[in-house]
Design a protein around this nucleic acid. Structure first.
Length: 236
DNA sequence: ACCCAGGTGTTTC
DNA sequence: GAAACACATGGG
């Protein structure tokens, strides 16, 4: 068992199942998987996950939940409702998620692209050849590596690892790598871990759970549940 | 009054 | 290329 997988197991036993995405209209997180298998029910759910992935960029999830509730109350979350809502109103609905002028544009561009280029729907699109679809999503303005991978993993159930700021921090503090480069970190974990959807899905969520309380920019190593496993080559 | 959050694009050395 | 900066609300 390699070091990253050991950390995954430790986190899983400390924090338990995270069950990230999708989200109910009430804003509550609902387990994505049943009997060990991750399944999304509809393109409607996939789209809501994609919207959440965009809105949560550098933003606390609680702020995103309010925006999702607002959108659902205002008429539901779909490419069509995004496109038929004028910019000022849409921006107002997502105000709580921060950067709302930019994010309104991101939602609109994503929706426009989806409707224009993939009218067959999100599930079909995301189910295509992984590297090609990833490059396609990545080419959209406002969607970088982490958001693209979040959409692929959580909305498309594709085996692609999501590396966020916490993941980079954890890896560096463990002494696994020095780089800050997104693709390098992503590749490190994909090489180290078993190619398993549940592992990819849960590990990213577990790292966020760890980061939320302990592996912060100013770390709280003394209380960290990983303190015995962490290399802690000085705080990076 | 700070720091931080499930980043990304642009500008500037 | 890397580093610095803008974008913005809400919680601790």
């Amino acid at each position: 068992m390699n070091a990253p997988y050991k950390i995954y197991s430790a986190l899983a036993s400390v924090f338990g199942p995270q069950g990230w995405w999708p989200v109910t209209p009430e804003g509550h997180v609902r387990p994505l998987y049943k009997r060990g298998r991750f399944k999304l029910r509809s393109d409607r759910e996939r789209f809501e996950v994609a919207v959440g992935a965009i809105l949560t960029q550098n933003t606390a999830w609680t702020n995103v939940e309010r925006a999702l509730v607002n959108l659902n109350v205002a008429g539901g979350i779909s490419p069509e409702t995004v496109l038929k809502t004028d910019s000022a109103r849409l921006a107002g609905l997502i105000r709580s998620s921060g950067y709302y002028v930019q994010k309104e544009k991101k939602l609109r561009l994503f929706s426009e692209y989806l409707v224009a280029k993939h009218p067959e729907g999100l599930g079909k699109w995301l189910g295509g050849p992984l590297t090609g679809v990833r490059a396609e999503i990545l080419s959209l303005w406002g969607i970088g590596g982490e958001t693209a991978d979040s959409i692929l993993l959580y909305a498309g159930a594709r085996k692609t690892f999501v590396a966020d700021a916490y993941t980079v921090r954890l890896g560096r503090r463990m002494g696994w790598f020095e780089t800050n480069d997104y693709d390098a970190v992503k590749n490190f974990f994909e090489k180290a871990l078993p190619r398993d959807l549940e592992v990819f899905n849960e590990f990213h969520a577990l790292i966020v759970a760890l980061g939320k309380d302990f592996c912060k920019p100013r770390p709280l190593c003394a209380e960290c549940p990983l303190r015995r496993l962490c290399g802690k080559k000085g705080v990076v």
